[in-house]
Amino acid sequence: MSDNPFADPFSAPPPPPAAAAAASKPTSGGTIETEDFNPFANRAGGSNAQPTTHQSTGSLGNKSAGMDDELFRKQQDLERRAQELRMREEELDRRQRSAAGGNNLNTNAQNNAPRPHNWPPLPTIIPIEPCFYQDIEVEIPVQFQKTVTFAYYVFLMYVLALVVNVLASLFYMIFAGGSIGQLFLACIQLALFSPCSFLFWFRPVYKAFRNDSSFNFMVFFFVLFFHCIFTFVQTLGLSNYACGWINALDTFNVSVPIALLMLISAITFTVALTGMVTALVKVHRLYRGAGFSIDKARQEFTNGVMSDAGVQRATQAATQAAAGAAFNQATQGRF
C-alpha cells in the first residue's frame, strides 16, 4: 500500500530511497552522478584469488607424492612377507612329505616309521646296506641347504684327493723309485680318513643345521680345524707322507709324466684344503649370527649325553669301583 492515500494513482511511483540517494549524490564538479557500477571489479578479484588456487594444487601434489611413497613401501613390505611365508610353506610341505614317506599301510606307521638308509649309495651287487639316511633338501632348512651342500662337496673333493694320492704313490713307486712306505701310508689314509671325515666333521655339521644343535657345531669346528692342518701337511708333500707340491716338483728330474701325476694330486689336495677353510668360515659366520654359544653346547651335552641311561650306568659303575678301590686301600693300610 502507498503511504499517501490521497496521491494521484496515475502519477509515477516515487523511486526507492537508495536509488534516490544515489541519484541525488553530487559529484566533485557539482553534477549529480547517475550510475557508479564497475563491471571489471570481479575480474580483478578473480586474478588476485588465482595464486591461492595454485598453492592449494601444489600442496595436494606433495600430499599425493607422499602417499605414493608410503604405498610403495607398504607394497614392498607385503611382498617380502609373502616371500617369507612361501619359503616357510615350502619347508613345511617338504617336511610333511618326508614324514609321510615311510610305510604306506596306515598314517601312524608312516609318521613313526624310520626312514630307509640311503648313504653311502652302494650298488645292489654289494651285499652291504647303507648306514645313514641323508637328504639335504628334506632335512635341512632352506636357508642352510647351500652351506651343507658345499660342505658335502668339500668332503667328496677330499676323498678324491686321497684316491689320486694312492694312484700317484703307486706310479711313483713303480716308475720313479718311490718307497713302498709312501704307498702304504696313502692306502691307510684313504681307508681311515675317508670315513672319519664323514663321521667327525661332515655328519656333525649336517646334524647341527638339521637339529639346531650347538654341540654338533662345536664338534665340527674342533675336528675340521685340526683336519685343515693335517691336509696342509699333505698338500706340501713333505718327505714320503703324501704326493704334494715339494716331492712332485722334485720328481721332474726323474720322470716328467709321474711328476705331472703327482702334481695333480697336489692340486686336488690344495682345492680340498681351500674348500675346508671356506666351509669353516661360512659355518662360523652362521653360527655367530644364530646366537649359539659354548654354554649352550655344554647344556646340550649335559642334557643329551649325560642323561643317557647307559652313560649314567657306566658313570655309576666307575664311581663305585673307584670308591671301592679307595676303601680297600684305606682298610689295608690300617689293618
Score class of each variant (00 low, 15 high):
4 N>P: 07
4 N>D: 13
5 P>Q: 14
8 D>M: 06
8 D>Q: 03
11 S>I: 09
14 P>E: 11
21 A>S: 05
22 A>S: 03
25 K>Q: 09
25 K>C: 06
25 K>Y: 06
28 S>P: 04
37 F>M: 02
39 P>A: 13
42 N>H: 12
43 R>Y: 15
46 G>D: 12
46 G>L: 14
49 A>T: 13
52 T>E: 10
52 T>M: 11
53 T>Y: 09
56 S>G: 13
57 T>N: 15
57 T>Q: 15
60 L>M: 11
60 L>G: 11
65 A>G: 04
69 D>Y: 10
74 K>Y: 15
75 Q>G: 15
81 R>W: 13
89 E>W: 10
90 E>P: 10
91 E>Q: 10
98 S>I: 06
101 G>I: 00
102 G>T: 00
104 N>P: 09
105 L>W: 05
106 N>F: 05
107 T>Y: 02
109 A>T: 09
110 Q>Y: 10
110 Q>H: 08
113 A>C: 05
113 A>E: 00
118 N>W: 12
120 P>K: 04
126 I>K: 01
130 P>Q: 13
133 Y>R: 00
136 I>V: 11
139 E>T: 04
139 E>W: 05
142 V>M: 06
142 V>H: 07
147 T>D: 08
148 V>S: 07
149 T>I: 01
150 F>W: 04
152 Y>M: 13
153 Y>W: 12
155 F>D: 01
162 L>D: 00
163 V>R: 04
166 V>I: 04
170 L>C: 02
178 G>D: 05
180 I>T: 14
182 Q>E: 13
184 F>A: 12
190 L>I: 08
192 L>I: 09
195 P>T: 12
195 P>S: 10
198 F>P: 04
199 L>D: 08
201 W>Y: 14
205 V>I: 06
205 V>G: 00
206 Y>Q: 03
208 A>C: 14
209 F>T: 00
213 S>R: 00
214 S>L: 01
216 N>I: 06
217 F>K: 01
221 F>Y: 05
222 F>T: 12
223 V>F: 10
224 L>Q: 02
229 I>Q: 04
231 T>G: 12
236 L>M: 15
237 G>L: 05
239 S>F: 14
239 S>W: 14
241 Y>T: 08
243 C>E: 04
247 N>L: 12
253 N>D: 15
255 S>K: 08
256 V>N: 14
259 A>W: 00
262 M>I: 11
265 S>R: 01
266 A>T: 02
267 I>E: 10
269 F>G: 01
271 V>F: 08
273 L>I: 04
274 T>V: 11
274 T>E: 12
278 T>P: 03
279 A>S: 08
281 V>W: 08
281 V>P: 01
285 R>P: 02
289 G>P: 06
290 A>F: 13
292 F>V: 05
293 S>C: 08
294 I>G: 06
295 D>L: 10
295 D>A: 13
298 R>V: 08
298 R>D: 11
299 Q>K: 09
301 F>G: 01
302 T>R: 13
303 N>P: 07
311 V>M: 06
311 V>P: 00
312 Q>A: 14
317 A>F: 06
318 A>H: 09
321 A>N: 07
321 A>Q: 07
323 A>W: 12
323 A>I: 11
324 G>H: 15
324 G>E: 15
325 A>M: 11
330 A>L: 14
330 A>I: 04
331 T>V: 03
335 F>I: 03
